[in-house]
Design a protein around this nucleic acid. Structure first.
Lengths: 162, 162
DNA sequence: GAAAAGATGTTACTTTGTATCGTTTACTCT
DNA sequence: AGAGTAAACGATACAAAGTAACATCTTTTC
């Protein structure tokens, strides 16, 4: 099972997460000749500011405040960057929260699901063959051909359980 | 595995689905002393008009058109009815679509997931122990205590595969 | 360096969902 | 039956999430 739950739910040097994420993003975009522009990088950095999913308008607010530039960042700008980052697999959308979170292992194919803590909001991404197979099996028995999956589990993270 | 996929994806006498759903709803609400008012029943019937999930504003439109009463049904009215029906387990919300669908087996406990056809929109509800266990296992390995789950699978239904 | 493609700025708008408050309807208890 | 209470509904206004369209600017390509 591939997961960042060990990190996401526990005290750690988060600067390393951010740096690693930016680094991987640059590499990936470079390899793909996709343009990781300053705006896109800022949106990615903003989302990676924590392990909690961030809404699009929270990103707008964050960027409008911290940005050195004078003018307010507008929704279409942020949504466009989000679209790019989702397309590149650098972030994921959490449907149940209308929010976005950084992908800890972009590039590798992974059929992922999310563990969302209802207390602290911290969210870990997991990829597990058993879950994957169970879903494909169940769908198969209904003669249903699986395309994409949305799997979001809400509960209590190890840190909040104490 | 509990599922209505045999029905949802194939030609059938849908009036029976609707009748059965209304019948069960009345029984359940009766037993719980919950009030299935005319508005709530109409919303439920509107949602059960097909096996495709319906958005809240689609329900508003449907009801405003077909309603014998003169005035337009307003969003808060519909959202309140939706809330009631969700609370009673008579309908489910599909986060990935912002839409609602009738529950084919309310009352029984079931940990459900959904098979959404990307072509015809028809959606079946399934409940499968293997999926359930796989998810709980995976979460358990992360020391995460599962509360509620959102599992929505998009793909192609048997009918559309031909 | 010109043309084309891609990214951003800006305005206005759509869709989805709620807070609030006043009124009406239904239930409860004597 | 009738007063009191709780639940449901009507209506207005608004918040939150997301997008269409078009002008402008920047980067790439040849």
């Amino acid at each position: 099972m591939l997961t960042n739950s060990r990190i996401a739910y526990h005290r750690h040097d988060h600067k390393r997460c951010i740096n690693a994420a930016l680094c991987r993003a640059r590499e990936l975009c470079d390899a793909r000749k996709a343009r990781l522009t300053p705006i896109r990088e800022t949106v990615l950095k903003t989302i990676w500011a924590s392990h909690r999913p961030l809404g699009a308008y929270e990103i707008v607010d964050q960027m409008s405040q911290s940005e050195t530039s004078a003018h307010r960042v507008l929704p279409p700008t942020v949504y466009r960057a989000i679209q790019f980052l989702v397309d590149q697999g650098l972030i994921h959308r959490l449907s149940s929260l209308n929010a976005y979170i950084g992908c800890p292992f972009p590039g590798n194919y992974h059929s992922d699901f999310f563990l969302i803590c209802e207390q602290c909001g911290s969210t870990a991404e997991c990829s597990d063959d058993q879950v994957d197979h169970a879903v494909i099996n169940a769908a198969g028995r209904a003669n249903f051909q699986v395309g994409s999956k949305v799997i979001e589990i809400v509960g209590i993270c190890p840190e909040c359980r104490g």
